[in-house]
Design a protein around this nucleic acid. Structure first.
Lengths: 148, 148
DNA sequence: ATAGTACCTTAACCTGACTTTAGGTCAAGA
DNA sequence: TCTTGACCTAAAGTCAGGTTAAGGTACTAT
């Protein structure tokens, strides 16, 4: 059993945020001793889940729903599964998007490296959009692909 | 030259958002004819940049700064390059993070698939944390790696 | 005793990124 | 003429996800 201060240390999450999560119902029936929150393994598991689902792009209220389902036992397996499947699809799409963004950023880094060497962008602008060096062109093209 | 309505259509961005971007100084010295905004190729280029930099996680005020540098010509190449390098590092880290999150989500999908088949989580809980089927274990372990 | 520290609450405040509202201009078509 | 549609502004509102403030309790060490 841990106090809110210990959990805050453990996870690097401000105390105010932990209290806010509690207010939002993310720790259903957390125990207290004379008003003071007692975080057990159960709450730690929930926090790990919150961190993961938050990073996957879920909102707090959706996370609260998921946690509620976890409490309700085996009859909500399907709902939990469906939510996770949707998340999976969304995260996969986001990952593809981020790869394109990264290629765009990398291209722009190359671009400004060249611009710095030359002192201007004249040569560079003549290379656009399809006379770039092979590797750079590949990044540029990938970054500019239409999303399917 | 395009009107705000045409640009809104082209980019799928609400008119109110385009006006908001303008208010925030993202289209420095955009021309107007009798009060009506005229979007040219220049503004279209800026919008493409906004979309890319936004997806890379930059805030509007940082994007405004970048656009301002673009206006200032060749003496800001270095600043622009540095900002992009920082973004590159951040996006690379985010990408790695997202891969872990995806593995976590995939693991959980598998978990609930099994739970649905079995009707309970007893078998599953016995497999944690290191007696999972090989492929699943790999996902689980990757998802739980400590960030370096 | 009293000071310090860690906890508690409620309510207000904050930030970023928009969106909505209320009221106004202006040109084209019925 | 008058209504419709596309534009305009300033100011207020919204939403998520917190954070801060003000005031209170309770244990511990000096």
């Amino acid at each position: 059993m841990y106090t809110i201060g210990q959990i805050s240390e453990m996870f690097g999450i401000p105390i105010s945020t932990l209290r806010y999560y509690d207010r939002e119902g993310l720790f259903p029936d957390m125990q207290r001793t004379s008003g003071i929150r007692r975080f057990t393994e159960k709450e730690i598991d929930i926090l790990r889940m919150i961190e993961c689902l938050k990073m996957s792009g879920l909102e707090l209220k959706e996370i609260r729903q998921f946690i509620k389902w976890c409490q309700e036992g085996s009859q909500t397996y399907e709902k939990r599964y469906e939510l996770l499947q949707k998340r999976k699809t969304a995260v996969e799409a986001e990952l593809e998007q981020m790869k394109k963004v990264l290629d765009m950023i990398c291209f722009k880094c190359w671009y400004y490296e060249q611009a710095m060497k030359a002192g201007n962008e004249e040569r560079l602008s003549q290379m656009l959009p399809d006379r770039l060096p092979e590797e750079i062109q590949a990044m540029y093209d990938h970054a500019h692909e239409k999303p399917q």
